[in-house]
Simulated assay, not measured.
Amino acid sequence: MASPLNILVLGATGYLGGTIVDRLLAHPQVSRFKITAFARSSEKAKKIEAAGIGLKATSGSLTEAAAKSDVVFNLASSDDLPFIQAILDGAERHFVATSVPLVLVQTSGSAILADTAMGEYASDKVYDDSDSAYLDAIPERLWHRHVDIPIARAHNKGYLKAYVTAPPLVWGSATGKLVDAGLQNPIQTSLLVIGRMAITRGQFGRVGPQKNMWSTIEVHDLADLHVEIFNKAVLEGKDIAGGSAYYFSANGDVVFADWLSLVAKALHKYGALKSADMTPFTDEEIQKWPILLAVFSVNSRCSDSRSRSLGWKPRPDKTEKEFLESIEESVKVMVNQPADFGASWGSFRPA
């Protein structure tokens, strides 16, 4: 009997991570897999295994866990360099022991395409994931690049095979076994972040007129892209682009003012804010929350010919129209969650 394929998932109970885990658990070849979630604590690992959904869990040394794996899906952090270095150290150990490169499916983000719009304008510039000359030249100072570049170097050294996705604005309610078990927050991360800021300041904020635009992708379509990369690179042994290559995903573009105004109205409707009015973030608030400059006030528009060349494509009924229509229900769920749900998210009820 062939040895199982050891798959380690980092961020397995996160918004996207749990959705990918659900896809792997339902994979036609799941009998070949040993899927393990890496948890930050032994207590969290015990909770994951106790859910009884067929997912193993471990904690402790990330380097050791990676060294024992054949494939790593990283959905836990796209910006924590020491965290990434632990994976790379594990990949080196794995290669020394097996002479086989560890496969890493890494989630970065399309914030690598960010401009300096400060919410003042929409850009007509759309970047394709096949434009390697442009993407390779993106400076290390931009979000995610200080992590993506070392991953590409490790890939080029031969002890790692890395495949990096860079999703835009991800939306939709996550579903699956981890959501049903109460281990995964089904609400999109961007909504949780901007909602927490609004509750903290007592009013919804904006950067300029929020004319900036982002491409969008529904969470289940994005999970399918990750699994398709895994299928092609690992199960089928295809020689697909890796290292410094990016895999984008896009299914429509949204103006930030359009979706943020809907979030503000829904937060007000469901009792999380006293008003749906939006006021400008102060300079002090922008300094306090760097994500406002790096993500919420910039343009980031992309196209995905490389991803689609794998045979993947997003569903035609999951575009920006459906995204905007989904916001009120997502906010309703978010506001009515228990205060301690999702670990650090806290309550969306006013103090």
Rank of each mutant, 00 (worst) to 15 (best):
A152R: 04
Y134F: 15
S330W: 09
V263I: 11
I151F: 02
K211M: 15
T63E: 12
I217T: 04
L24V: 00
P167K: 03
R306Q: 09
A66Q: 02
D80R: 07
K47P: 07
A272F: 01
L222I: 00
H146A: 14
A114I: 14
R40Y: 10
G172V: 06
S244Y: 10
S307P: 06
R141E: 14
I149W: 09
T63L: 06
G342M: 06
W289T: 06
R206S: 15
G158T: 05
P28T: 02
P290N: 11
V105H: 06
D277F: 02
H146D: 07
S309P: 04
T175E: 13
V71N: 00
D115H: 02
F38C: 03
K211I: 15
N185G: 11
D70R: 03
F204H: 03
R93L: 15
S41K: 01
V254D: 04
P316Q: 04
V164G: 00
T319R: 11
I48E: 04
T107G: 02
E140A: 14
A198W: 00
N156P: 10
C302P: 00
V96E: 15
R306T: 06
L102H: 02
Y246R: 15
S3P: 10
E228Y: 05
D277G: 12
L102K: 07
H220Q: 11
K321P: 09
E329A: 13
A37W: 06
V219S: 03
S309C: 10
I291L: 08
S249Y: 01
L135C: 02
V298M: 05
E218I: 05
F73E: 00
P350T: 08
A250W: 05
S61L: 07
T279A: 14
F95D: 02
L88W: 05
A91H: 00
S59L: 12
P28C: 08
Y163K: 07
S41Y: 04
A133I: 11
Q106S: 09
V295T: 13
A351S: 12
K47Q: 14
G208C: 04
A26T: 12
L62N: 00
K332T: 03
K274R: 14
K161P: 07
I199F: 12
P28Y: 09
V335C: 03
E49M: 07
S42Q: 15
R93S: 13
L8H: 08
A162H: 07
I194L: 13
V255M: 12
S108M: 04
Q210D: 09
H94V: 05
L16D: 00
K269W: 07
L178A: 01
I286Y: 11
P186S: 11
D253W: 03
S132E: 13
K46M: 12
A266L: 03
L62G: 01
A86P: 03
I217S: 00
L293P: 04
E328I: 12
I87V: 10
L81G: 01
Q184P: 07
T63K: 12
A198D: 03
G195C: 03
A162G: 12
N299F: 00
V255C: 10
S69A: 14
L10I: 04
N336K: 08
D22L: 11
K46W: 05
K68W: 06
E322N: 02
S78W: 00
V9A: 02
A133W: 05
D180E: 15
I240E: 03
S99K: 15
A12K: 01
P350K: 07
D258E: 13
D221K: 06
A166Q: 09
